[in-house]
Nucleic acid binder design. Structure first.
Lengths: 145, 145
DNA sequence: CATAATCCTGAGTGATTTGCTCAGAATAAA
DNA sequence: TTTATTCTGAGCAAATCACTCAGGATTATG
C-alpha cells in the first residue's frame, strides 16, 4: 500500500516548479540538484508529466520546464495519476463504476475498496500545488470541492 | 498505489469466518474453495493473521480457523496491517510522528502524505467485519469512532 | 556559424517484491 | 491407527521498481 518513489519524486519536482512559477523555465538538472533526485530518472518522470499536459518543456540552451497551468489548478491527484495511473486500491474499482472482476455481484469487499478509493481521492484531488507551496496544508485551509 | 492480493484475500477470508461465527472452526480448504483462492497461499496469509491474534487455529481432523474475537471488534485496518504492515502511503509517515527521512524538516510534501494516510486509516479503522457481513457499507451506517 | 546546453527518446538492467508452489512435520479427531 | 487438518520453511518464476546508458533533436548564446 505504498506509493512508488516515482510518485513522490513527481510531486516534489512539480512543487519546485510551482514555487518559481512565472519565471524562466527551470532546467531538469536544477530540480535534480535541489531535490537530490537522479536526473535521468527525473527525465522519465517528466515524460509522463508532459504527456499529461501538466508541464511544458522548453528546448535548447537555457530551456527547461514550467507548469502548463497555474499551480492553483494542479492537484496532487493530477500528478499521481499522470505518473502512476488511476488512484484505486484494487483493480476492481478502477473505472467509474464498471469492472471486470466476475465476482463483483457477490463481492462484499468491493464496497470497502470504493470507500477507500474515494477517501484517497478526496484528499489528493483537493490539494493543489498552490496549497502546498503556500504551506496551507498545515492550517487546514485547502481548496473546497 | 495498489493493495496486494494478499491483503484482499485476507479480508475476504476473514469475512468468511465472520459470516459463520460461533459455529465450528472452518477449514482452510473450505475457505479456499468458497473464495477461489489457492489453499497454499491462504496458509501463508493465515500465518500472519494468527500472529496478529486475529484468528485461532484448531489443529487436527475437523479443525480449522475461527475469529479470535467478535466480528464487531475486527476492522479492515487490523487485517491489512496484519498481512501488509503499517498503513502508510510513503515510508516517512510510518511511525506515529517520528521518521528517518533527513529532509523531513524541509519537506513540504510530508504533510500531504500524512493527510492521505489519515484518510485511509479513517475508512479502514472504522469498518468492521460485522459491518461488512451485515451489508452495512451500502447504507452508510458503519461504526463511529 | 559553431558550440554548448538543454529537452527528448528508447533501450537495458540489477534488485526487490509479488504471488504463488512444494515438501513435510506436528497435532488431534474419528 | 488412520486421516484430516494446522503449521513450518524453503524455493521460484514473473512482474515491478528504481534506476542507468547512449545518443538524437532543438535552440539560445558567444
Amino acid at each position: 500500500m505504498r506509493l512508488s518513489t516515482k510518485g513522490q519524486y513527481a510531486v516534489r519536482a512539480m512543487l519546485v516548479l510551482a514555487m518559481r512559477e512565472a519565471e524562466a523555465p527551470i532546467a531538469l538538472r536544477q530540480i535534480s540538484e535541489l531535490e537530490d533526485i537522479s536526473a535521468q530518472y527525473l527525465e522519465q518522470i517528466f515524460v509522463d508529466l508532459r504527456k499529461a499536459k501538466l508541464v511544458e518543456g522548453v528546448r535548447g540552451a537555457s530551456g527547461g520546464y514550467r507548469l502548463a497551468r497555474p499551480a492553483e489548478q494542479i492537484t496532487a491527484g493530477d500528478i499521481l495519476r499522470a505518473v502512476e495511473g488511476p488512484i484505486a486500491p484494487v483493480e476492481c474499482v478502477l473505472h467509474g463504476d464498471e469492472e471486470a472482476c466476475g465476482r463483483a455481484h457477490i463481492c462484499i469487499t468491493r464496497e470497502l475498496w470504493k470507500r477507500l478509493r474515494d477517501s484517497m481521492s478526496a484528499v489528493l484531488d483537493t490539494t493543489t500545488l498552490a496549497d502546498m507551496a503556500a504551506g496551507r496544508l498545515f492550517t487546514g485551509e485547502t481548496r473546497e470541492v
